[in-house]
Simulated scan of single mutants.
Amino acid sequence: MSSNNKKENPLVEVLKVLFYFLLIALVISALSACGGGANEAVPPQSIPITDPSASDGAQEDAGFIVESEASLRATGSASPAQTYSLIESVFGEGSIEAPDLFTGDHVETAHIIEETDSTVGPHFVFLAHRDEDFNKGVQSDRQRNEIKTYDKSDSAVLGFEGETMQFEWYFYVSSDMSLSSKFSHFFQLKARNSSDSNENGNDDQPVITLSGVEKDSSGKELQVRHSVGFNMDGSRTSDVYLLKTNWGDITDEWVKISVQATFAEEGSFSMQISRMEDNVTVVDINEPHIDMWRGVSGEDFIRPKWGIYRSVAELDKLRGQEERVKFADFVIRKGTP
């Protein structure tokens, strides 16, 4: 009786197995050559400043051609030392002006900490204490807890004459925060001049400030101010208000703030503030012809500052409880509008 189940030669079976293994190896090799490995390691950046034009060409964002970008994002660290190190890795050593860093000031507690929430994730919390905090170690009519870029920062985060920059961040402040009729600044664009000359306005007054003020007649007010600096005789000029609006428009929720400025005598400035919850724009400032330059030499620049810088001249208007102001995801870009 004949059978159709013929047993194959053992050598043929071995060759089949080898063929299958060879085929699998060729497929894996082809995928690796194409960079398709899902677990492929990406080396970390040693400098948190990127140059889009060095790779895929300049990037365009709503008509703005990005030439460089720097970002500062919280990691959620519980270590103040790591938080301060992170900030200085982007803005430069010495870029933090917190009371705990100055002898004779409120050194017992860290004034910039990190927390995490479900809306923005890790973020920075700036603290202010009415009765303990001074101004960089000096007891005066004001107190300061800020971060800034300055002459030791990378040039990518400084604005030189003729340059256009964008600044973006997320911001949270409580409606319960106490304000005075003087000033409480949360963001500034400030000039740094190599000379004390008043020829072009000096660098004493901030060019732009975002502030909260307590008005006797209308309650708390959000303000954006512009200054042209000192007069030639050294007298101080009055601020021009680009915005006065209800403080409650931005409180008790995260908002996104976007700024674009061209630093020139005939410069430009815009600021938009939108609520994250519903993406409604509550502040929209556009000044296409505005004096945004105070410099007198090629070494001069404009730099951003964030935090809490406030007057304590009206101490009775400020509550004794710790004040907390939150910031997240700072981005600084240079480019062409």
Score class of each variant (00 low, 15 high):
Ser2Pro: 10
Asn5Asp: 04
Glu8Trp: 07
Val12Leu: 12
Glu13Ala: 12
Leu15Asp: 07
Lys16Phe: 03
Lys16Leu: 13
Val17Met: 11
Leu18Arg: 10
Phe21Cys: 04
Leu22Cys: 10
Leu22Ser: 15
Ile24Phe: 14
Ala25Arg: 00
Ser29Cys: 01
Ala30Glu: 13
Ser32His: 06
Ala33Ser: 13
Gly36His: 11
Ala38Glu: 13
Glu40Pro: 00
Ala41His: 04
Val42Trp: 02
Pro43Gly: 01
Pro44Arg: 00
Ile49His: 12
Ile49Leu: 08
Ile49Ser: 06
Asp56Phe: 15
Ala58Met: 10
Glu60Lys: 06
Glu60Asn: 14
Ala62Met: 04
Val66Arg: 08
Val66Lys: 11
Val66Leu: 07
Ser68Tyr: 09
Leu72His: 09
Arg73Phe: 02
Ser79Gln: 08
Ala81Thr: 12
Gln82Asp: 15
Thr83Glu: 01
Tyr84Phe: 13
Glu88Pro: 10
Ser89Arg: 08
Phe91Thr: 00
Glu97Gln: 09
Leu101Asn: 05
Val107Met: 14
Val107Ala: 08
Val107Ile: 13
Ala110Tyr: 02
Thr116Arg: 02
Thr119Val: 15
Phe126Met: 13
Leu127Glu: 13
Ala128Pro: 00
Ala128His: 05
His129Asp: 14
Arg130Asn: 13
Phe134Pro: 00
Lys136Asn: 14
Val138Trp: 01
Ser140Gly: 03
Ser140Gln: 14
Ser140Lys: 12
Asp141Thr: 14
Arg142Ile: 12
Arg142Lys: 12
Thr149Val: 09
Asp151Ala: 06
Ser153Glu: 14
Ala156Tyr: 01
Leu158Gln: 15
Leu158Val: 02
Gly159Ser: 10
Phe160Pro: 01
Glu161His: 11
Glu161Phe: 04
Glu168His: 05
Tyr170Ala: 01
Ser181Ala: 12
Phe183Ser: 04
Ser184Pro: 01
His185Ile: 08
Phe186Met: 13
Ala191Met: 07
Ser194Val: 11
Ser195Asn: 10
Asn200Gln: 05
Ile208Trp: 00
Thr209Gly: 07
Val213Leu: 11
Glu221Tyr: 00
Leu222Glu: 12
Leu222Arg: 11
Gln223Met: 10
His226Asp: 03
Phe230Leu: 14
Met232Phe: 11
Gly234Lys: 09
Arg236Cys: 01
Leu242Pro: 04
Leu243Phe: 11
Leu243Arg: 06
Gly248Ile: 02
Thr251Pro: 13
Thr251Ser: 10
Lys256Thr: 00
Ile257Lys: 04
Ser258Ala: 06
Phe263Thr: 03
Ala264Gln: 09
Ser268Pro: 06
Ile273His: 10
Ile273Arg: 08
Glu277Ser: 10
Glu277Cys: 00
Thr281Trp: 01
Val283Asn: 11
Val283Asp: 12
Met292Thr: 12
Trp293Cys: 07
Glu299Ile: 01
Asp300Cys: 04
Ile302Trp: 03
Val312Ser: 04
Ala313Cys: 03
Asp316Tyr: 05
Leu318Ser: 02
Arg324Asp: 05
Arg324Glu: 13
Lys326Gln: 09
Asp329Arg: 10
Val331Thr: 15
Gly335Glu: 01
Pro337Glu: 10
